[in-house]
Computed example of a mutant assay.
Amino acid sequence: MDTAASLAFFQNLYTGVSLYVVPELAAAAVPPVVAAAEAPTPAATPLPAPAPVAAAPTPDIPAAPAAPAPRPVPVATAPVPPASVPVPPVVPPAAAPSVVATADMSAAGPLFNVATLAELPAAPAAPPSQPGRIQPTPTQSPVAHIPFATLGSNPNGLLILVRVSPEEFKKLPRNVFLNNILKAIRLVMEDVVLVNVEHEKFPVALCSLRQQLAARQFLAFGKNLLDVAVYTTQPYEPVLLYGDTAFLGASEIKMLEYDAGRKKQLWQSMQRMFL
């Protein structure tokens, strides 16, 4: 028989069986697992029950002694002096006076500000008046009867003199230019008193103003507004009248609002007076 045909015959006969495994070696290679599995398992020998252990006698533990009560601490008391010895009264130490710096006074509350005056020259002597005219003084004046109106609540502040109609005078506290002028010298409208001279020609008397107001600073917007300054002052020239009254005259507010040159003159004179 052909070798190839013989090989095909045996392959069909022993399908699934390797033709190259030696039976003896295959049997020797398989471990006896089945035999070991079939061997009877010896019964487990029960362990003897443990003998009861006798409890050891517990010695008697004495109770902890109670904590001793705290002993009262004696309070030291001042010895009572004999009745014959006078006891001086106890005087508490005097509190140190509070010192407030001048620069911090502005933070103390909403107080009225007073512009600080610079050193100003004294007003020149009044020229000889015309025959029949009397030179006014701080205590008496021929125009003491001239009426005036006021707006403001600070009698010790700056006095602003004007001559306008009553309707314009009521609107003056809201004037933008006037508020800016006050702001430049670190003041507000509540720090000043507005005075409107109600006569069209004659000035108001200083002696009449001092009956109601104690101010010593005057800023006049217009001509012939204060009697003691008519002959002794020049526009935009701040001076001291009678040694205690600072006065500065300027043009009317309506003229200053639209005139840059006059506003510059006013600011320079206010710097000399207040700053």
Rank of each mutant, 00 (worst) to 15 (best):
D227V: 01
A229I: 03
R174C: 01
E200G: 10
Q217N: 06
V176L: 09
V188G: 15
A205E: 10
E237L: 09
Q211E: 15
V188A: 15
L225N: 02
Y236W: 10
L182H: 01
A205W: 11
C207D: 05
Q217F: 03
V230R: 09
A229S: 09
G222Q: 01
P173S: 08
K223V: 13
D191Y: 12
L209V: 07
L187Y: 06
E237I: 06
V197F: 11
N175P: 07
N196F: 04
E190M: 02
L226K: 04
V188S: 14
L194D: 06
Q234P: 04
L206A: 08
V204R: 01
Q217R: 12
V204L: 09
Q211P: 09
V197A: 13
L209H: 08
K171I: 04
L182I: 00
E198W: 02
I185G: 02
E190W: 08
V176W: 04
L187A: 03
L226Q: 01
V192A: 08
V195C: 08
H199S: 14
P235T: 10
N224P: 00
L194E: 11
Q212R: 11
Q234L: 15
A215Y: 02
T233R: 15
R186W: 10
L187D: 02
V197K: 03
Q211D: 15
R210E: 14
Q234A: 15
P235R: 07
F218D: 05
V197N: 14
L225T: 05
V204H: 09
A215C: 08
L187G: 03
L226W: 04
L187H: 04
R186V: 05
L213N: 01
V192C: 06
A215R: 09
A184W: 05
F177L: 08
S208G: 10
V197G: 13
I181N: 02
N196Q: 13
A215T: 10
A229H: 01
Q211A: 15
V193W: 14
E198N: 14
D227G: 00
